[in-house]
Design a binder for these strands. Structure first.
Length: 599
DNA sequence: TCAGAGTGCGCC
DNA sequence: AAACGGCGCACGCTGA
């Protein structure tokens, strides 16, 4: 097996450097096989529980017959009490893990796992094991190298951190068979034992970069993320089907019209559409909606095309992928989350992505079952509040403390109008200004952004004036920008209020990125903290975390207790926000509803 | 034939 | 010198 050309290494002092990798993986020294014993009865588990309860840490790993906790079975549970001794529990022989309940829920020993979400989904929901303190070597690796090109599989991490070769060729092998051979058991044992050594190596780096606090958040949050994945969101299958049919008919009609205009081309091909447009004397910069918009008045078919594209987007991206991902057993959608998926620290979501479902009626498809309700709770203007906190901008802080509308304030400042004379258009413009300028947008960008995202026309001189007035008013933001800019060349990383880092090696440091990452990332820190609080509050009750979208948490609960639950959700989310936002209030809006579309 | 880069667009 | 950021997904196209 040959390997990629270079990788990033961190030496003992925590310095980062690029290293050429010329050797093949299998040239590396082999990770040695620990001692192990095979456990095949429940009674032994009590002895094991007592044994490991005196450990500071244990490595925990499972082998399963597949990846789906609703369908697949745990084949083996490996518990490493040291880096050289592993209990391998045969889950085809052992029926329950009651004996391990106390030692797992305890904070000691710390349970080390590589991707703890996976283990929890099986062990908590199939064997009712709750976890105390967790250490996740995969999340740790992401925290230590965030921003740099790194892979996070156990094999890669072992290679980079320990310089050892972990053979994963048995990873997907025959775990269904009744009897396992010693090769398989060796493999299973190695995976658990190495976690202990790996953690020791990682801990030094976590301390060096002061990542302890954010690591704690990430590790704890795996409990909530596992729950969201396991629970999934309820879908109203009938209305999904209705919507699908509706879209199919609509798309077919539009398609017919477009063929009439363009000729027999593939409408989904940008190239072919561009060519067809050119033959009619239309030369847009691209076939994107924004470049086509200006031709709508003269060519009504362009409007049809834009409508088609946007409907087709919803159809294929939302309706079809939703349909594809309805779970055969639970009839819900169980998305996967990449808990630390974005460089900022945000989660990402896939299969299906529930973080880009269009707003509005289409969200009615997500409907709580009979007798249940959804609570849709989101932080109000969290990013602007974080900006106020980080920049210490006095105008912003004062406005939030007086519960004023920030967009209106900006509108009044840049239009030089009295607050009472503002039009809807002024406020739209101010939104573009606020979101654009705080993250380092220039005047030219502002004109484009205002037009594209907020449908507001702005001339260049007007944009220049607005830029000037904006920073005259928000002096703290200006100063914060200057400070970040002045240090931008030297800094090895930018960080959030929890200490989460985004590292830079040879990468270009974009100002916009340096402004945005601490803000977006602190938002993620707060959201994850809120998920932790809510998990702890509702764990093992009928109230379930089912989704979260950057500044929003969705909970499903019994109708009978919905109002009380809502109060708790708001309170806990505010408590999480207050951990990092000290100078202004945190506001959470929570809607009680049957569907995700809200009231 | 198929992986991967590119385009475009939904969300926050 | 100038730059708003962060995702995932569908699609057609490219090149090995």
């Amino acid at each position: 097996m040959s390997y990629k050309k270079h990788s990033i290494k961190m030496n003992e002092d925590g310095q980062l450097s690029f290293v050429e990798i010329s050797q093949t993986l299998s040239d590396l020294p082999l990770l040695k096989t620990p001692e192990w014993v095979l456990v095949e009865d429940e009674k032994s588990l009590y002895k094991i529980a007592e044994e490991i309860s005196s450990c500071k840490v244990i490595g925990v790993d499972i082998e399963t017959t597949g990846l789906d906790p609703h369908l697949d079975k745990v084949r083996l549970l490996q518990i490493a009490s040291s880096n050289n001794f592993v209990y391998i529990i045969d889950m085809y022989k052992v029926n329950d893990l009651v004996a391990l309940k106390d030692v797992f829920i305890s904070n000691k020993p710390v349970k080390i796992m590589h991707n703890a979400i996976f283990e929890q989904k099986f062990l908590k929901y199939q064997y009712q094991l709750d976890f105390g303190t967790i250490y996740d070597t995969m999340l740790a690796n992401k925290l230590i190298y965030n921003g740099l090109q790194k892979r996070n599989s156990l094999q890669e991490v072992i290679k980079d951190e320990l310089g050892l070769f972990l053979d994963k060729s048995l990873q997907a092998s025959m775990w269904k068979s009744k009897n396992l051979d010693n090769m398989q058991l060796d493999y299973a044992a190695k995976d658990a034992a190495v976690l202990i050594t790996l953690r020791e190596k990682q801990i030094k780096k976590i301390q060096k970069y002061k990542l302890t606090e954010v690591a704690k958040i990430e590790f704890e949050c795996t409990k909530a993320t596992a729950e969201m994945e396991y629970n999934g969101m309820a879908v109203d299958i009938a209305s999904l089907e209705t919507e699908k049919v509706k879209f199919e008919q609509l798309l077919k009609e539009l398609q017919k019209d477009l063929i009439k205009y363009f000729g027999k081309i593939n409408i989904n091909s940008h190239q072919q559409v561009a060519k067809a447009l050119a033959s009619k004397g239309i030369y847009p910069e691209s076939t994107s909606e924004k470049s086509l918009k200006k031709y709508i008045d003269k060519h009504s078919e362009i409007k049809v095309f834009i409508d088609y594209k946007s409907l087709n987007k919803i159809y294929s991206s939302t309706l079809e992928s939703l349909n594809k991902n309805i779970h055969p057993k639970t009839k819900r959608v169980h998305s996967s989350y990449n808990q630390f998926g974005a460089a900022s620290g945000r989660m990402s979501c896939y299969d299906p992505n529930l973080q880009n479902v269009p707003r509005g009626e289409i969200r009615r498809i997500f409907k709580a079952p009979e007798g249940r309700k959804l609570i849709i709770a989101d932080y109000s203007q969290i990013e602007l509040r974080i900006i106020a906190e980080i920049s210490k901008d006095e105008t912003l802080i004062k406005a939030f403390n007086q519960n004023k509308d920030i967009h209106n304030i900006t509108a009044s400042v840049v239009t030089k109008k009295d607050m009472n004379d503002l039009t809807k258009d002024d406020r739209q413009k101010a939104k573009a200004v606020n979101f654009g300028l705080v993250y380092g947008m220039g005047t030219r960008g502002l004109v484009r952004y205002a037009s594209n995202s907020f449908n507001v026309d702005m001339s260049m001189p007007e944009a220049e004036d607005i830029y000037h007035e904006f920073f005259k008013n928000y002096k703290g933001i200006k100063a914060w920008h200057e400070k970040v800019k002045n240090n931008s060349d030297d800094i090895p990383f930018i960080e959030t209020l929890s200490g989460r880092k985004r590292f830079y090696q040879d990468e270009k440091r974009f100002y916009s990125e340096l402004f945005n990452t601490p803000v977006q990332g602190t938002g993620a820190d707060i959201l994850k903290l809120a998920l932790i609080y809510l998990f702890n509050r509702f764990n093992n009750s009928s109230t379930k975390l089912v989704n979260s979208v950057h500044d929003e948490i969705i909970i499903e609960c019994n109708e009978t207790s919905a109002k009380e639950v809502r109060e708790i959700v708001v309170k806990e989310m505010i408590r999480a926000g207050k951990k990092y936002i000290k100078s202004i209030p945190i506001v959470v809006d929570a809607t009680l509803s049957d569907t995700w579309a809200g009231k």
